[in-house]
Simulated assay, not measured.
Amino acid sequence: MDIANLSLALNSAAAGKARQAPDSNAEQTKAEKEKALRKTAQEFEAVFISEMLSHAGFDKAVSQDAGFGGEAFSGMLVESYAEDLAEKGGFGLADQIYRQLKGQLK
């Protein structure tokens, strides 16, 4: 799956979650939508960082001479590092995405 398809999938998932929110309390619904949007933006940044690390060869460097099990482990390790980086602020991509899309929430 390439980045463009992943982006579409994440945006669709976030939109679906936002539409399922109850309409009884509009302010609470907006807060829930903003929380879901922030989480989705952070997940997107984690995937982006993971792809960058993989394309830079980080996964191969970690699994050097480790065999098939090492290759599988290195992929999971790269994903874990990417998630940790994104949670701690990453490159600021998640914040930019969140700010850009926040105004489009209803």
Rank of each mutant, 00 (worst) to 15 (best):
S12T: 01
S12L: 07
S12G: 07
A13R: 15
A13F: 08
A13D: 11
A14Q: 14
A14N: 09
A14W: 11
A14Y: 03
A14S: 05
A14V: 15
A14L: 07
A15S: 08
A15R: 11
A15W: 06
A15C: 03
A15F: 08
A15E: 11
G16K: 07
G16D: 11
K17S: 01
K17I: 06
K17V: 03
K17C: 01
K17Y: 02
A18E: 00
A18K: 02
R19L: 14
R19S: 08
R19V: 12
R19T: 05
Q20P: 02
Q20C: 10
Q20V: 06
Q20G: 12
A21Q: 06
A21K: 01
A21N: 01
P22H: 02
P22A: 11
P22W: 00
D23L: 13
D23R: 13
D23G: 07
S24C: 05
S24Y: 06
N25K: 04
N25S: 11
A26Q: 12
E27K: 07
E27H: 02
Q28S: 04
Q28W: 04
Q28H: 08
Q28Y: 01
Q28C: 02
Q28P: 00
Q28F: 04
T29R: 13
T29H: 03
T29S: 10
T29W: 02
K30D: 02
K30V: 05
A31I: 10
A31N: 14
E32L: 14
E32Q: 13
E32T: 13
E32V: 10
E32A: 12
K33D: 09
K33M: 15
K33A: 15
E34A: 15
E34D: 14
E34T: 12
E34W: 04
K35Q: 10
A36F: 10
A36C: 05
L37I: 05
R38P: 03
K39P: 00
T40Y: 01
T40M: 09
T40C: 02
T40F: 02
T40L: 03
A41E: 08
A41P: 01
A41L: 07
Q42H: 01
Q42E: 10
Q42M: 13
Q42N: 10
Q42P: 06
E43D: 10
F44G: 09
F44L: 11
F44C: 07
F44I: 03
E45S: 15
A46R: 06
A46M: 05
A46Y: 08
V47I: 09
V47G: 08
V47M: 09
V47F: 06
F48T: 05
F48I: 03
F48A: 09
F48S: 07
I49N: 04
I49T: 07
I49W: 00
S50F: 04
S50T: 04
S50E: 12
S50L: 00
E51C: 09
E51V: 06
M52C: 12
M52H: 10
M52A: 14
L53M: 14
L53S: 04
L53D: 01
L53F: 09
S54G: 13
S54P: 00
S54K: 11
H55S: 14
H55T: 12
H55C: 12
H55Q: 14
